[in-house]
Write a protein that binds this DNA or RNA. Sequence first.
DNA 1: AATATATGCGTGTACGATAACGCACAATTA
DNA 2: TAATTGTGCGTTATCGTACACGCATATATT
Lengths: 345, 345
Amino acid sequence: MITLNEIAHLASVSVGTVDRVIHDRGRVSEETKKRVQKLIDELNYKPNVIARNLSLKKTYNFGVLMPRPEQDGRYWELPVNGIEKAIDEIKMYNVEVSYLFYDKYSETSFREVCLQVESSIENYDGLVIAPVRSKASEKFVEELPKNLPFVFIDSYIRCNSCLSYIGQESYQSGILAAKLMRLKIDHGNIATMRVLPVDYHIDDRVKGFSDSIKNMDAYHLHVFDADREKDLFIFRETTKRILNEVPDIKGIFVPSSCIHQVADFLVEKHRERDIVLIGYDLVEDNRKHLKSGAIDFVISQRPALQGYQGIISLFRHVILKESVEEKVIVPMDILTMENVDYYQG
Amino acid sequence: MITLNEIAHLASVSVGTVDRVIHDRGRVSEETKKRVQKLIDELNYKPNVIARNLSLKKTYNFGVLMPRPEQDGRYWELPVNGIEKAIDEIKMYNVEVSYLFYDKYSETSFREVCLQVESSIENYDGLVIAPVRSKASEKFVEELPKNLPFVFIDSYIRCNSCLSYIGQESYQSGILAAKLMRLKIDHGNIATMRVLPVDYHIDDRVKGFSDSIKNMDAYHLHVFDADREKDLFIFRETTKRILNEVPDIKGIFVPSSCIHQVADFLVEKHRERDIVLIGYDLVEDNRKHLKSGAIDFVISQRPALQGYQGIISLFRHVILKESVEEKVIVPMDILTMENVDYYQG
DNA sequence: AATATATGCGTGTACGATAACGCACAATTA
DNA sequence: TAATTGTGCGTTATCGTACACGCATATATT
């Protein structure tokens, strides 16, 4: 293992000079700089991260902008778990997180949190952002200082300065949902819900599902709109509508974690046995319904891994100075009553 | 953050004394020891791992005993990938691995590797063992020095001194396979293979599958033996036997990664469309058949994660001196042609 | 009583990198 | 010409821990 000191010796300069070359701090003659740089390249010198972080007695703070954990049927607790796991692993590097939770269904709430970050921007060494509110997020990241790295998790927005995106292949997961539906049902009426307000990746799930089903003669697809901003229990209400309008419905696909509202309602009406339910994300209520059989399949896109990876990507870039993947697509996992107990998302 | 120095000051002793207390090196009076220990406990002092490893300029070497990567349809490459990923993450702690590959189907090959380890046992700071050859493995670990930590991956053997087991819930995954089979087929003849030589967790898969299917009137289960030690292409040959003996076979379950041999044969005979295939592990050949539709489902038990976790467990115990989980059960993942491209095992 | 051994504890240095400091000399400015 | 500023470097303290070493003092052995 090559060290600073060795380079210094070989170049017949002091460690200070080598350090200045490495960090491009100037105050080194062009000639010496070349000589040192050549040795660094030739010997493939890599700074010892451990020594560096011991020396740089700095504490790092990563900000996490995401919806309140309890929203979407406590879905957002799952990325938080992953974030906590990551922080636990790298706590010896003096890394902390500051959570900045916002109400996913309120533009002003998100704006407030953005302002809060902007007003103390110097406190942050990196940001993990779940840009659920796309437009406002785009504006926010545009105005971030150029030297503040940030990563997206969960959903993607147009942006070329982001360090990394960790997320889902939503359209494809809709196709997968359709496949699972066809395994359980070989013909008849199927419903799905388009969730409002528009969220790109939830929309894509519906598109993937619809595109797979709509051209098949055996099935008849009914699409219902469900505006979550109008009603917290919109999924329940929409299920009521479905049962009214399509009495012989065979299966329902809900492109969000709120499938448990649908299951709750069907259980009340004793219809859970004859209607196939497919939804997303292993929140506690969904786990319960999956085990009882009310929900047939849950697709999970490793929410904990998304949170974990978000922090780790920042860590690798900011602290280890390593390069990170621009895009990390998480797997889509199929959960049934048989494998749910062993799942780690 | 409390440091050694602060403890020393508060206890009015030198860091040397505190160090001796911490590492229980003796040469400290009972009285001072108590005083120091009390401060350590009260202030909840935790040594700085980074500083420790900078100081202990040690390089660590973990031995990995496992079947040759190319065996079982190159299944064993997958844990190696996970091991490499782990090593890459912790390389700054000067951790290396030595691979000790053996022929899974040869007792003498395994014995040789064991001898090799024993003869230079002082080189190893920990071992990751895939105890595929159960009996010989039991004997081997019994004779290991008490202070050499080791973890099991892939399969478990009776042993109370192992640091950690990272593995699969095989019986349950057999149940899952049966569920998937029932989704595709609602009645008829189904076959499965019992693989020889006996491997507990592969056997358990068959048991889980059989127990789910055999009591159902709609299905008729045929169990075939396949002795891998007699023939490298035994799965292919056994498939031939199945087609001969049960001409109207509807589905075949193979409890190992060698399902691709079955798929190869069925494709040759143009029977891949009307026979459902379910097997294990996303090796390259299986991926191909999954995407083409010849294989319907692959169950994966995160082989890369198993390798990764094996190394990380040793790392946490040996280098970070943290406590590790005694048992880590990896999830069982369902792979279909729709989600296979996004899988990370 | 003289010497050997054991115990208790402090000191010093290494690990590798960072960054503040300082010194010598040159170039620029007043 | 004297004062100021800038450049090109070396030196050194620092981070927190580990450990070799050495010096006292106490106890045991001859």
